[in-house]
């Protein structure tokens, strides 16, 4: 009797569980994830100001959040080492996107060659596998010997760091193209080039975009290193010079700016993904 009383409610509950799934327009999750993350940030800021106001740590090592905020204001208006924050940031962004353009223009065709042809894989695979594990700082001096200390060497180093993820993700994307999709195009009379352009490339696009996201991360971390040498502008250069004069608030402000820009990159990349390859998450 108790069994028969217990089982009907669970049956009644079942449809509700389904309604609470991710497809539903009105999810009833207890607390949005963003709120938890926001609360964490606020708590960290609070602890930071507490540590600063009670003088637990010398301001030389950890200036208060207020001091960092003032430093940011100062950076934006008057600047640091002969350039405003915007000028530093633009110098860095030009390097990043210049390098990204080079890396995509080189990496996608190389990835396609590796993914589609045995010959291409044979020739290019060892080169990529040689480059991939090298830390950018290891080849930075060589690139400077070759290209000098101007913009070219900085962009080259960042592009070299971005290349492997783009190449490998393109090659992986090519392999993910469905055989039926390729065969369908062949049955409609597509040439090899048409199959590549109309089937393989779109199939690989989601993977290429993921690779681009990873490449942006790699490029961003290489940027700071590249700007250590003979730069007069750039976020990495700004932090480095501030550190030499022990202007800790500018160092922290610079770090926060870099983190914020990287965050915006990531969000933009995700939006782009949703807009360009909406099918990759469905189907």
């Amino acid at each position: 009797m108790s069994l028969s009383l217990e089982s009907p409610p669970s049956v009644l509950h079942a449809p509700r569980d389904i309604a609470g799934g991710p497809e539903n327009k009105r999810p009833r999750s207890p607390m949005p994830l963003a709120w938890i993350s926001l609360a964490t940030i606020v708590a960290l800021l609070f602890l930071w100001s507490l540590a600063a106001s009670y003088g637990l740590v010398s301001p030389l090592f950890l200036p208060s959040p207020l001091a960092v905020y003032r430093a940011l204001q100062g950076l934006a208006v008057t600047g640091f080492v002969d350039a405003t924050l915007a000028q530093h940031a633009i110098a860095s962004l030009v390097r990043i996107f210049g390098a990204l353009a080079v890396a995509i223009a080189l990496g996608v065709p190389v990835g396609l060659a590796i993914g589609t042809s045995r010959l291409g894989k044979g020739i290019l695979d060892p080169i990529v596998e040689f480059l991939r594990p090298l830390p950018p700082l290891a080849y930075l001096p060589l690139v400077i010997i070759w290209l000098g200390i101007g913009e070219a060497s900085k962009i080259a180093v960042i592009a070299l760091a971005m290349l492997p993820p783009i190449i490998l993700s393109t090659a992986t994307g090519v392999r993910s193209a469905s055989r039926d999709h390729v065969n369908a195009a062949r049955a409609f009379g597509a040439s090899r080039l048409q199959v590549l352009r109309h089937v393989i490339l779109p199939s690989a696009l989601p993977s290429i975009l993921t690779g681009t996201r990873i490449a942006l991360g790699a490029g961003w971390s290489t940027l700071v290193a590249a700007e250590l040498v003979a730069a007069t502008r750039g976020l990495g250069f700004m932090i480095q010079s501030a550190a030499q004069f022990l202007v800790t608030d500018v160092v922290i402000a610079g770090i926060i700016v870099i983190a914020a820009v990287a965050f915006v990159f990531e969000m933009t990349a995700r939006l782009l993904e949703r807009w360009l390859v909406p099918w990759s998450t469905r189907r």
Binding site: S178, D180, H181, N183, A184, A185, A187, F188, G189, A190, Q194, H198, V199, P202, L205, V277, W279, R282, R283
Partner: peptide, 29 residues
Amino acid sequence: GSDRAVVFQDDALYPWLTALDNVAFPMRL
């Protein structure tokens, strides 16, 4: 060859194209 059109069990439609563009695909080629 285009004289022998194939219909696949798993439809093999291109998800990056709309229904219309899928149908127009052989003519695009």
